[in-house]
Simulated assay, not measured.
Amino acid sequence: MTDPGTPPAAIRPARDCDDAPLGELDRATWSTLHSVQPRPMPPYRPFFDENHPPEGYLVAEADKGDGELGVAGYVRVVPPSSLACNQHVRQIQGISVADWARGRGVGRALLRAAADEARRQGAVRITLRVLGHNTPARRLYESEGYVVEGVLPGELFLAGRYVDDVLMGRSL
């Protein structure tokens, strides 16, 4: 049992060597509950590329239960665009938690670290998009102060049904 005062995970900036573990995590956690991308199939592309460099990611490491540290999750925090007029905003463009780390506060720790990183970069707002049917994620975001700022009804067609794209944000 983890001590209640112990953080659920150590959060750190991503490194080049995280490419393979993050790619594995992304494939293992893929679901139409949260992903708009097709299921990843071999041959797998690198996790990091020119549009998704390690600098945009924070990685959570936690004890896998056997005393060994493992990649428990990640969050991508980046400017929403290259426009100068919205550089005061950061956007979460992906968050994932390993199945073995769920229910341990890792997702919440990643959200808080994302907000801290956004503040460190000078942002005053943080936003994200979540699929309308992803109730667990929406509850987590709401518990961390995010509010629904817009809904694009039926914006996406996933697994045979139309799904809302929900825009959420908060001040920092």
Results as ranks from 00 to 15, higher is better:
4 P>N: 11
8 P>S: 03
8 P>M: 07
8 P>Q: 05
12 R>H: 04
12 R>Q: 06
14 A>P: 03
16 D>M: 05
21 P>A: 04
21 P>M: 00
24 E>A: 14
25 L>T: 07
26 D>P: 00
28 A>N: 13
36 V>H: 08
37 Q>K: 11
37 Q>F: 14
40 P>V: 00
40 P>F: 00
44 Y>A: 04
48 F>Y: 09
48 F>S: 03
49 D>R: 01
49 D>S: 08
53 P>H: 08
57 Y>L: 00
63 D>Q: 04
63 D>C: 04
73 G>T: 07
74 Y>I: 00
77 V>R: 03
79 P>R: 11
80 P>R: 05
81 S>T: 15
84 A>D: 15
87 Q>R: 14
89 V>Y: 07
90 R>L: 11
94 G>T: 09
94 G>P: 08
95 I>L: 13
97 V>C: 03
99 D>N: 05
101 A>S: 06
102 R>G: 06
107 G>D: 12
108 R>V: 10
111 L>H: 03
112 R>A: 12
113 A>E: 10
115 A>W: 01
115 A>E: 15
117 E>Q: 15
117 E>W: 10
119 R>I: 08
119 R>N: 02
122 G>F: 04
122 G>K: 03
122 G>H: 02
123 A>V: 07
127 T>Q: 15
128 L>W: 07
129 R>P: 00
130 V>G: 06
134 N>M: 04
139 R>W: 05
143 S>P: 08
143 S>I: 08
145 G>C: 04
146 Y>F: 15
152 L>A: 15
154 G>P: 05
156 L>H: 14
156 L>D: 07
157 F>L: 14
162 Y>V: 03
163 V>Q: 09
163 V>S: 10
167 L>G: 08
168 M>Q: 09
171 S>H: 13
171 S>P: 01
